[in-house]
């Protein structure tokens, strides 16, 4: 099953490589990983998406918790949560019908066109991964020049929160 795991980790050099190293050393798969500092500069928040049987995911969370730099961990999949991912996608948009089509699609998906050239648009889109995948499919024959996705981030709904 797919799990989205959130960590608070000491904002120290090497903390990221400890997590990455753990996944490669133990052969766990990692679908996406995103990390940035929090309002508390000493902490980073990391979200990782992984897949595995319940036993494997249990080991993954235990092994992550065991890393000395990991302060707290939450498997968001266990409760109600919101998941978002951002994508910047550059598509070919040279003739007017093509340009209209991309603009229309971007609107439907509540995306923004954030850069325009004679031959291309850059669309900014947020949503869960499925929505971003759906946008790519919807583009159909429109040539994609470049895709950048940040990996999933998540936050629990309601009063529950991950903090120290």
């Amino acid at each position: 099953m797919r799990h989205i795991i959130s960590l608070l980790i000491e904002n120290e050099a090497g903390a990221l490589s400890r997590v990455a190293g753990l996944f490669s050393a133990r052969g766990y798969n990692i679908e996406s990983l995103s990390v940035a500092p929090t309002e508390d500069a000493s902490l980073s928040r990391m979200t990782l998406v992984t897949r595995g049987s319940e036993e494997i995911v249990e080991q993954i969370t235990k092994q992550l918790n065991k890393l000395v730099d990991v302060v707290k961990l939450l498997d968001l999949t266990e409760g109600a949560h919101i998941e978002r991912e951002m994508m910047l996608i550059k598509v070919q948009a040279s003739d007017s019908s093509g340009r209209d089509e991309v603009k229309r699609l971007a609107d439907i998906f509540r995306g923004n066109i954030i850069d325009v050239s004679n031959t291309s648009y850059v669309v900014e889109l947020t949503g869960d991964s499925c929505k971003l995948d759906a946008f790519i499919r919807a583009l159909g024959d429109t040539p994609i020049l470049e895709t950048v996705r940040c990996g999933s981030m998540g936050i629990p709904r309601g009063e529950k929160s991950l903090h120290v």
């Binding site: 036993e55 249990e58 080991q59 235990k62 092994q63 918790n65 065991k66």
Partner: peptide, 11 residues
Amino acid sequence: IDPASISKTVK
């Protein structure tokens, strides 16, 4: 003492 040792290979 190590939670990761528990149910690692045998449930």
